[in-house]
Design a protein around this nucleic acid. Structure first.
Lengths: 130, 130
DNA sequence: GACATGCTGCTAGGTGTGTAGTAGACTTAC
DNA sequence: GTAAGTCTACTACACACCTAGCAGCATGTC
């Protein structure tokens, strides 16, 4: 499932912690996203239609929960960009990353470590749905 | 400069070889892109408006050349996805790639090699504008 | 129970994107 | 020079997306 830019903002906010009300989500949006409250609601409604989130009510207030996991959304986003821009394979993407020196020294190091399988466990564990 | 999906198709075709006519570009589009000729032209027109390509005529026929380089387009695409989906940093993206084992064994090997700076030269050299 | 506040449902308008058609100009073959 | 084919310029339309407003219902407080 591919997300639009506005949808990413909302999903990122929701993945932080859920269930969450629209107001809570709104409060977690990055500063540069200065939407009207109703805009947040509209995006939430679309996400629910798409099946990315679930909505339920407790006494007239809507609570939201993610259905789509962050992992799956990331995978879809990457697959899309790889398909369009990197001949459909992850290899060229990785090649590009290294070539372009888009990575800081620390990032390179972490990557090397990860590739060699001596990853430190526990730290920075992406909490995710499921 | 961010490209849309249709624009990527056309740019990929144009980067292959240029200058190229609309007919040549059309012929290079992937099979699953079964556009009417006029659709290709419309996308080309939009790309020209955006400044991604340049158009010139020789006796009533338009030839096209890229202005936007593949590298820059790729960078923009990555930056966009990283901004939306990976907290704005390449680190988490790389981490994700490795964790997800999105890479084949060969790709991992190439990546390791590249990180250690013993890249084989010459092979698979992305020809690019400029 | 009337009022303020806050939430929901519904609606809407502008812009981007994908896709394509039509009309007219030009080119080439006879 | 006329017919057939090809090209361009211009226009169009549907759908997705971003953004938001409005009206009405629920809830709590005095």
């Amino acid at each position: 499932m591919k997300l639009t830019s506005a949808e990413w903002h909302v999903m990122n906010a929701l993945w932080q912690d859920w269930p969450a009300t629209a107001r809570e989500i709104e409060a977690r949006l990055p500063e540069e996203v200065a939407w009207a409250y109703t805009t947040t609601r509209s995006v939430l409604a679309r996400l629910e239609e798409k099946g990315a989130i679930k909505e339920y009510k407790r006494s007239n207030v809507s609570f939201y929960e993610p259905i789509l996991t962050r992992r799956k959304a990331r995978m879809a986003a990457l697959q899309s960009v790889v398909g369009e821009a990197f001949e459909g394979a992850f290899g060229p993407l990785v090649h590009f990353l290294v070539e372009e020196e888009a990575l800081s020294e620390g990032e390179r190091q972490k990557l090397t470590d990860a590739l060699e399988g001596r990853e430190e466990e526990g730290a920075d564990n992406d909490s995710d749905v499921e």
